[in-house]
Computed example of a mutant assay.
Amino acid sequence: MTERKLTHSTFTLEREYKASPARVFQAFADPVVKATWFDAPSEEWRHLGSSLDFREGGREHSEGQFGEGGPVSRFDAYYHEVVDDLRLVYDYEMRVNGQRLSVSLASIELTPTAAGTRLTLTEQGVYFDDLDNTEQRKEGTIELLESLAKAVED
């Protein structure tokens, strides 16, 4: 039986984009654009469905499957603050095959730079019963931020 315990952690990632804060922000706000980097199908990932109500008090849902017949991952978020072209604050829950892995509070700050935009993402997470951990979450988030670059940079 899995030991019942909670693990807490915080991490911050920064990424520079050769795109304006408005363009980076729009990649989160526009469901069509977001699907190109957040839910993009690949050999390892099959998108099963998503919804996005991008506003304060709005919710987001995304579900996909790893490989053919593999585990199903589900992301459910609630937006607490949405400030156009500047920042987002939201909480989200991650599940795999219906089992909760984590609950996190995340913030994204967009700062104009000479070359475009600096995105700063800070996440405070609680991970359940050793089913997920900070390093795995950081790795997955870095991959998403790299995918975002492909969506916003020329």
Rank of each mutant, 00 (worst) to 15 (best):
R137I: 01
T120V: 10
K150V: 09
V96Y: 06
L119S: 02
Y90C: 11
E109F: 05
T120S: 09
E135R: 08
A115Y: 03
E139N: 09
T117W: 04
Q136L: 04
G125P: 05
M94K: 05
S104P: 02
Q136F: 04
L148Q: 08
Y127H: 02
F75V: 03
T134H: 06
L101D: 02
D84L: 05
V126L: 14
R87W: 02
D84Q: 12
V83Q: 09
E109S: 12
K150S: 12
L145I: 08
V83K: 13
G140F: 05
L105M: 14
Y90E: 12
T117N: 05
G140M: 02
D84A: 13
L86I: 10
V103R: 15
Y127P: 03
G116S: 06
R74I: 11
D132G: 02
L105F: 11
S73D: 11
F75K: 08
Y92C: 07
A77Y: 04
S147F: 13
L86E: 15
G125F: 01
T117E: 03
A106M: 11
R137D: 01
Y78F: 14
V103E: 14
D91K: 13
Y78R: 12
S147M: 15
L144D: 06
K150L: 13
L119C: 03
N133P: 04
A106T: 15
R137C: 07
E123A: 05
E135W: 09
R118D: 00
L86C: 12
E139M: 12
V83I: 12
E93R: 13
E109Y: 08
F75M: 10
N97A: 01
Q136V: 01
T113V: 06
P112E: 11
V152Q: 05
V152T: 06
